[in-house]
Amino acid sequence: MSSTSVRPDPAPLLEARGLTRAFGAGATAVQALRGVDLTVGEGELVAIMGPSGSGKSTLLHILGALDRPDAGSVSIDGRRYDDLSDRELTRLRGEVFGFVFQFFNLLPTLSAAENVLLPALVNGERPAGYAARVDALLGRVGLGDRAAHLPTELSGGEQQRVAIARALLRHPRLVLADEPTGNLDSKAGGSVMRLLRSVVDDGQTVVMVTHDPGAAALADRVVFLRDGEISGEVEGGDTARVIDAFREIEAGAQPERAAA
């Protein structure tokens, strides 16, 4: 399978250059990103894999304009946005990005449908225009009959699916998802991946973090992160290849780190 090879090189939508990000200061400082370069084309589905603590979430937050890098740049359509004002970043988050949090971040006082509707409300829109869209999205994630339920009445996996539906509501050009299948069984995980795939087929772009090679294999491209650095990349499409590459990189990194 080489669907990506027949496809012409997609126009770069997202470009990250030399991203670094550290947390804390002094002896307890943690260098979460140490110069990450990443390019994502328009209409691509990119998966980011890596061991726990390797900086995946940190990278995704910077890409999603939730956090700023210490150094380096991120740009969309060739325009840098790491140095924009809060007002412009807010617009970007509202109009261009859709974010799925690792821990869902549903509002506890809102029903599932209201949580899905939230991006529209936040951007000053009325609910009426979204009736069909909310229904459809909840249906797509298999929660058509749970619209009125509060997050506390939903399981972890169900909450995660509400979070995904929420990110997709306003057809964002770039969907950033942090472990969207993390709490799901293989069946539900599979349906979420099909949903993301169909989103990409509609022309949107998806960058997701995952620990699941099966899910990663459904991406066009899998990028590996290790200790805050890109340590390799592989074409998607084949679970076995992804697992192999992952192992290889993990193994290959071992001596490197020992030497360091």
């Binding site: 809102l110 029903s111 409300l121 009325r126 979204y130």
Partner: peptide, 23 residues
């Protein structure tokens, strides 16, 4: 036209404040 989606009682962003107060 004014029908809200199923499971939605909020009318606008301002409704969030009411939820917070009631919570």
């Amino acid at each position: 036209a004014s029908a809200r989606p199923a499971g939605v009682r909020l009318r606008s962003f301002a409704g969030l404040g009411g939820r917070s107060l009631r919570a």
